[in-house]
Design a protein around this nucleic acid. Structure first.
Lengths: 184, 184
DNA sequence: TGTAATTTTTAACAAATGATAAATAATCAC
DNA sequence: GTGATTATTTATCATTTGTTAAAAATTACA
């Protein structure tokens, strides 16, 4: 039922059966929060359908860490692992269906099952690589280059994301992104 | 002998004895490379003494991902886990002594020992959190704010890092950083 | 369909940062 | 120590991005 996640491919038969029992389906409407800033993130979410953003806000602006669409695996890593208040919101940009597993259940699974621990390690490794790539881009590229880069890697996603959200992801204002697009 | 690393505190007695056998000491002079771009990163390095940077270069500029000093644990995550050519250099900024373990040995240890796998998971989790924090800062803060932030968190390190390297870390030019400092 | 609300674009100006060059200061090698 | 090398600062100008405001386009919905 909940296939198509690399994390799960890593699991052995036992762990796979276990995790299927733990996973619970949840649905979020567009605009609903999977997690609000200040709350403790108690789940890892497997997105089956829809689109979410992890973001935070200033007094004046919003900033987006990442988008996650179908087959994406989402959690607020430091809140989840430390069970501390999240600095980020997780918000549905479309009607979104997720399968999720609680930290309590996954901890149990990881304690009992080495392959689950390994799968989790691979998941956070992937998150690390994604964030390093993002840091590299932000160091090296200006806003126009980051925009082109995002288009190249996420061509299909762009149609589902507002310009404002894309600007928040790129770390610039909506006005600035509009100007960048006009130049091309 | 090789104490003071959180990663190791996580290990059980067996794994701890094993890893002590695997760890090898290496010394690098100032300016020597622990890893060059294009090489495959085959080790995790535990810095005992000294200072290194993970960096990459443009046609014209250098960019620094992170500095690692005493008790820091360094690897180029995607090169290490995928055993693919590194996009980054790892370079000693001071004479540096490291204990290192090869991926071959650590893989063996992780296969045999659940607590080693967990320790590795915690290591990459920490790396993820660090990189997320860095992305957040780069989205939200301008260069002057990032400079102040770095000073606040790494006051003691600043004296060991050249202005040029600090600028490369902040993603600005040396000239720009000099200007920022002059304003304060 | 028509009106309101929202999103995107355009414009004008301010602030931040990059690029280049030159001056000054600090460090290194002999 | 002395000269050469390297690192840092200062200055000037160009480019990028932010801010604000208004216009235009799109979308929502009654």
């Amino acid at each position: 039922m909940y296939t198509n996640f690399n994390l799960l491919a890593e699991l052995n038969e036992t762990a796979n059966q276990e995790i299927q029992r733990y996973l619970k389906l949840k649905k979020f409407k567009k605009g609903e929060y999977l997690l609000k800033k200040g709350q403790v993130c108690r789940y890892i979410f497997f997105i089956q359908e829809g689109l979410v953003k992890i973001c935070f806000t200033n007094e004046t602006r919003e900033f987006i860490m990442r988008f996650f669409a179908e087959n994406g695996i989402v959690t607020v890593i430091d809140s989840y692992f430390k069970q501390s208040p999240s600095a980020y919101d997780v918000l549905a940009l479309e009607q979104t269906t997720v399968a999720c597993i609680s930290k309590t259940d996954l901890d149990r699974l990881c304690n009992e099952n080495h392959s689950a621990e390994r799968a989790l390690r691979k998941l956070v490794t992937q998150a690390s690589m994604n964030m390093m790539e993002r840091v590299s881009e932000m160091l090296e590229e200006n806003a126009g280059e980051r925009y082109a880069h995002f288009l190249a890697l996420n061509g299909q996603l762009v149609n589902r994301i507002s310009l404002g959200d894309l600007a928040s992801y790129l770390g610039i204002t909506q006005v600035s992104l509009s100007r960048i697009r006009a130049k091309k």
